[in-house]
Write a protein that binds this DNA or RNA. Structure first.
Length: 448
DNA sequence: ATCGGCTCGCGCAA
DNA sequence: TGCGCGAAGCCGAT
């Protein structure tokens, strides 16, 4: 079902006649469990019109490179095939997402899109809603509980958002039925030069190619569902106990797929609950409470990517008070980027990200805490951590990335024991890693 | 191995 | 206004 709270009109244009209903795909790059696509299909059927899907492929997306584009294109090739099978024309244009949507909006009776929370995504939608001659509807499909249903303000911590999410969780854990379009649109004459969604198409785009594709993760909904099935069958039962151990592989690996909208969090949640496993509670906590806390941050804090706005006042105060503390180790961006520090665990974490496009969740915390410790100011550390994460992680620039980096600097956390450099911001060290995990095994895992 | 203290502020009870 | 308690820890005491 599609709850009314998922649907938001972005302008107040009166109904117009048109040749088709347009689904502008941007954040939710999938055909399964996509409320926006289903909403668009039902509207098209109600209006007796065919449905067309448009996607704008730009090489000017901030901070992206061949690694991100390859993963995304693997998913889009699959989307293109799946839409064709359902009789829906998929149009990929070499244009910015907003201008691609507007290019086809002129002949649309209605434009439907999905929702993204980053500034650039909000801005694209604002421009489309303003310039489109037809009504524009946004359907929120990349969270389990719609962000504004959970809270109308920036939440302070997981403990404040948790009860607000759980209050609505059952209500939103509802399957989504798939509707078949009444009219086939694959043969529609649209007078556009569209791109073929394939890896070869990337050759024609100008982008940063210094960060290459990874073999550790293949993009696309099929691969996401395969990994999810494997996780549920072999790892979920021990998730609570073993998820933090970086020498093991007891995580779901859903991050990159969620980032590109290649799988739906609702779909994941329903499958995990269906499995009736002891790991359910811990997993839902990560997938829904903590993930949607990061959506809350990006939605309500316009400076989510800056030190001054994203890091809370108490943390900035205590870090500023320790600004002048001597640093035993100091590294610049280049040395950190090349995993060239005195700390073999940190280097391994950085190398894991460089080589696989993903860093183990627990090491991400350690990694960020050490950047804070080894850079001249907390502000510089914050910027370096964000920069490296966005560049090399497949899920860089996700709300989770911004929240995760900010957490290392005190966001969504509480003060702890006073110490040098950190003040009362939570500290982590290598002894903790060794105490809890087989770190030699982690080093072998990354280097092997 | 286990435990308390560290330290701040939100949110609820009163 | 008071009070309990918290996104993943550390450290020293027992």
């Amino acid at each position: 079902m599609i709850h009314a709270q998922r649907v938001m009109p972005l302008n107040d244009r009166p109904p117009v006649t048109g040749r088709y209903v347009l689904y502008w795909m941007q954040q939710a790059q999938r055909t399964e469990y996509n409320h926006a696509l289903e909403y668009a299909t039902r509207q098209a059927n109600a209006l007796g019109l065919p449905l067309v899907c448009v996607f704008g492929l730009t090489d000017e997306f901030p901070e992206t490179n061949l690694r991100h584009y390859t993963f995304m294109m693997q998913g889009l090739a699959e989307v293109s095939d799946a839409l064709a099978e359902r009789g829906i024309r998929f149009v990929m244009l070499r244009q910015a997402p907003d201008s691609a949507a507007l290019r086809l909006a002129s002949d649309a009776a209605l434009l439907v899109t999905d929702r993204g929370y980053l500034r650039v995504q909000v801005e694209w939608r604002r421009r489309v809603a303003e310039a489109a001659p037809c009504p524009v509807m946004q359907v929120e499909t990349d969270v389990v509980v719609p962000v504004e249903v959970v809270s109308d303000k920036e939440e302070y911590a997981a403990r404040t958002i948790r009860p607000r999410i759980h209050k609505h969780l059952l209500e939103y854990l509802k399957p989504l039925a798939q509707t078949k379009p009444m009219h086939d649109s694959t043969g529609l004459d649209l007078d556009v030069e569209d791109l073929r969604p394939s890896l070869a198409t990337l050759d024609g785009l100008s982008m940063d190619r210094t960060v290459g594709p990874v073999s550790a993760f293949t993009g696309g909904g099929a691969e996401a569902r395969r990994l999810l099935s494997e996780f549920i069958a072999e790892k979920l039962a021990d998730y609570d106990e073993l998820r933090n151990d970086p020498s093991l592989d007891f995580v779901s690996h859903m991050g990159p797929y969620l980032h590109f909208g290649q799988i739906s969090p609702l779909d994941i949640a329903l499958q995990v609950i269906e499995a009736d496993s002891p790991g359910e509670e811990a997993f839902i906590e990560e997938l829904v409470v903590r993930r949607e806390l990061s959506m809350n941050l990006v939605r309500y804090n316009p400076g989510y990517d800056t030190y001054e706005a994203a890091v809370p006042e108490w943390a900035r105060r205590t870090l500023a008070a320790h600004q002048a503390d001597p640093r035993e180790y100091l590294y610049d961006l280049e040395h950190l980027e090349q995993a060239d520090t005195h700390d073999e665990y940190w280097n391994a974490a950085q190398n894991e990200m460089l080589r696989t496009g993903k860093m183990h969740n627990y090491m991400r915390m350690y990694w960020g805490k050490k950047i804070l410790e080894w850079t001249p100011t907390a502000r510089e550390g914050f910027e370096i951590a964000l920069n490296l994460n966005n560049k090399y992680s497949l899920d860089g620039r996700d709300p989770n990335s911004f929240a995760g980096v900010a957490w290392c600097f005190g966001k969504h956390d509480r003060p702890w024991q006073q110490r040098d450099i950190f003040g009362t911001v939570r500290y982590m060290n290598a002894n903790g890693l060794r105490r809890k995990f087989d770190m030699d095994a982690y080093l072998r895992k990354v280097d092997g």
